[in-house]
Amino acid sequence: MSAVYARRRVVNVIALGLSGLATLIGLIFLVWILEITVQHGFSAMKPALFTKITAYQADGGLVNAIVGSLEMDLMALLICTPIGVLAGTYLAEYASSTRLGASIRFLNDILLSAPSIVLGLFVYVIVVLPMTELTHGRISFSAFAGSVALALIGLPVIVRTTDEMLRLVPGTLREAALSLGVPQWKLTVQVLMRAAFSGILTGVLLALARLAGETAPLLFTAFGNNFMTVNPLNKMASLPQTIYQYTGIADAALNAIAWAGALLITLFVLALSLLTRIMFSRKKVSYE
């Protein structure tokens, strides 16, 4: 009898020990990756990064890539925020229990983890190819196409957050407004969206955090550019795409610039996700 007890106790101790070890493994990889990024990135920091363009290669900087990233991220947000917020509102307020609503919600969850490289190919086929055709090759790859691709990455995040945040608004608020004879669009825009504003804003920031680090969808849409441009119809450099390019070349000076860019982007993305976590530590939505 006691042998059985002993065996069970040993199994238990081993299992619990292994689970602690698993957690330790996860944390070690986190620290390892962050430590390497900070160490390499910090030692490669130099003022030229923020004043010179990538055309100078090893003697140059990243300023055109930084400007390009900011511009494309902003344009992507301008595209996906209105669409995402309105779509999320539709799901929460008009289709919370309809078949159409359920299937859109379901497919939005799939879009949330769809491979980003395929979204890049999609935008290549529907934006880059037709533009090339229409302008006889004068405009092909463009920052606009890059922004559309990034917007597709951010869209499902905003839809989901808006949907969940609006459903957290108490029903009494809706009933009170409707009983005063307020039309539903006014109720939605002036009461519900205001009540859920901080939640929706969190969604937008989370979308930004996700799309700012994306590389794959930019390769065949914005393409890259060694010179400074702000025209959305030009090819445009971005931070992730420049990092990708510089990492693939066996040249220590270019690799160092890539690490500096990697540190910038990691800091930006981690700061955003920490900010949203602090802003929104109570109402939790999961983004798997």
């Binding site: 957690t23 996860g26 944390l27 990889f29 986190l30 390892w32 990756i33 962050l34 390497i36 990024t37 390499h40 955090a209 700012a212 680090g213 994306e214 590389t215 794959a216 992730p240 990092i243 990708y244 990492t247 690799n255 890539a258 690490w259 990697a262 982007i265 990691t266 993305v269 981690l270 996700s273």
Partner: peptide, 20 residues
């Protein structure tokens, strides 16, 4: 901390993978 692993951009995993 574990969820922070999901926030790190994938290009960083690529660089860390290649160089380290």
């Amino acid at each position: 901390a574990i969820e922070l692993l999901a926030a790190i951009p994938s290009i960083i995993y690529g660089m860390w993978g290649l160089f380290v």
